[in-house]
Amino acid sequence: MNLKSIRTGKGLSVPKLVELSGISRRTIQDIEKRGDCLVSNAIKLADALEVTLDELCRTKDEKAGE
């Protein structure tokens, strides 16, 4: 999961992402720590960050294996 790198790359704080996505601060912090989440949350985050689910969820290693 590329959440933290995408979020910071766009200059967004966790509180701003909470506002944009409607997902709680704790949940966002847990996702950034664990690296996985519910698909419904991934969709909300991808929409808020204006990226695809693929960009949000796949690592470079996973993309290389295609």
Rank of each mutant, 00 (worst) to 15 (best):
57 C>H: 01
34 R>E: 15
35 G>T: 11
58 R>L: 15
21 S>V: 02
55 E>A: 14
31 I>Y: 04
30 D>E: 05
47 D>A: 15
42 A>D: 12
27 T>L: 00
53 L>F: 07
40 S>H: 08
32 E>D: 00
12 L>I: 02
38 L>F: 10
45 L>Y: 01
40 S>F: 06
42 A>R: 14
15 P>I: 14
48 A>N: 13
57 C>Y: 00
50 E>P: 04
6 I>Y: 10
28 I>E: 07
16 K>E: 15
63 K>E: 06
26 R>L: 08
51 V>Q: 03
29 Q>R: 15
29 Q>I: 13
35 G>M: 09
16 K>Q: 15
22 G>N: 08
15 P>Q: 11
45 L>K: 02
15 P>H: 13
55 E>W: 06
55 E>D: 15
55 E>Y: 08
57 C>K: 01
53 L>T: 10
8 T>K: 14
61 D>M: 00
54 D>H: 09
47 D>T: 12
43 I>S: 06
9 G>E: 15
32 E>N: 01
19 E>W: 13
42 A>H: 10
20 L>H: 01
31 I>K: 03
49 L>I: 00
32 E>G: 00
1 M>S: 07
55 E>K: 12
26 R>D: 06
32 E>A: 00
6 I>Q: 08
43 I>G: 06
2 N>E: 03
42 A>S: 12
21 S>W: 05
29 Q>F: 14
64 A>N: 04
36 D>L: 12
60 K>Y: 12
48 A>S: 12
25 R>N: 11
2 N>D: 04
63 K>V: 07
50 E>V: 07
38 L>N: 13
18 V>M: 03
66 E>A: 09
38 L>C: 09
52 T>L: 10
58 R>V: 03
24 S>D: 10
54 D>N: 13
26 R>Y: 04
3 L>Q: 04
34 R>P: 12
9 G>I: 13
50 E>G: 03
43 I>H: 07
40 S>K: 13
7 R>T: 09
20 L>N: 04
46 A>Q: 04
26 R>T: 11
1 M>H: 12
49 L>W: 04
53 L>H: 10
20 L>Y: 05
62 E>C: 01
